[in-house]
């Protein structure tokens, strides 16, 4: 994913997140998105990041970040303890995506999932013509060295949610690098997909104290 495309996705996310939200960013990297959310939306944020370098960089931005493996789950967080749980450009590297998504819906009132769409026409064309796995801009690696082991399309994610009764609240699709937002045929035209899902606690009657 190009820097420009990443920035466009960040713009979308910053736009979506409400002012003063409590945010958990899973796979927060160097914390750039969290820092923007805090600066531009007054969010109270915390991150989880696997790499030591990412944790160092995020702490250098003044953020609170816990080094850890998302695939271990989010057991320490209470139900509905965040307004937003964000999983941006990390889904494709998870070993246990279902576990993580379930946990996101448990601890977040809203969950946001952003991932590269492998249904894009260029990826399909590439596979059809060359017989090789695509290396589109958002997937810079070859099959043997990519951390992105979960390759999925917009259609895949929609049916995943449909099968599990997960409520998709919003979808935003982006083309790279021009930042167009195709509404028709997104699975063919968008490089990046951003889904907003309703957390479990939203649909449930609030527990009395």
């Amino acid at each position: 994913m190009s820097d420009a495309a990443a920035r466009l996705a960040y713009d979308v996310i910053v736009d979506l997140v409400g002012r003063g939200s409590r945010v958990l960013d899973l796979g927060c990297g160097d914390g750039l998105l969290l820092a923007r959310l805090m600066a531009e939306k007054g969010a109270r944020g915390t991150g989880v990041e696997l790499s030591q370098a990412g944790v160092q960089a995020a702490i250098a931005r003044g953020l609170s970040v816990v080094q850890g493996d998302l695939d271990q789950g989010l057991a320490d967080y209470r139900d509905g303890s965040f307004d937003w749980v964000i999983l941006n450009q990390t889904l494709q590297s998870l070993v246990n995506p279902s576990l993580v998504l379930n946990e996101m819906l448990r601890v977040g009132k809203s969950a946001l999932v952003g991932f590269p769409n492998c249904g894009h026409w260029r990826a399909r064309w590439h596979l059809l013509l060359t017989g090789h796995m695509p290396q589109q801009a958002s997937l810079d690696y070859r099959w043997y060295d990519t951390p992105a082991t979960r390759l999925l399309t917009i259609a895949d994610f929609r049916s995943y949610c449909g099968e599990r009764g997960i409520n998709i609240v919003r979808e935003v699709f982006l083309t790279d690098p021009d930042g167009g937002r195709p509404t028709r045929w997104p699975n063919l035209r968008a490089e990046t997909a951003i889904f907003v899902l309703a957390g479990q606690i939203e649909g449930r009657p609030r527990q009395r104290p």
Binding site: T46, Q52, V55, Q56, I59, L63, S64, V65, V66, Q67, G68, A75, D76, Y77, R78, S81
Partner: peptide, 15 residues
């Protein structure tokens, strides 16, 4: 770190 998170304490952890 887990116990602090449960209590919503602002915590960073580096290994």
């Amino acid at each position: 770190v887990s116990a602090l998170k449960v209590n919503n304490v602002d915590v960073s952890y580096c290994e």
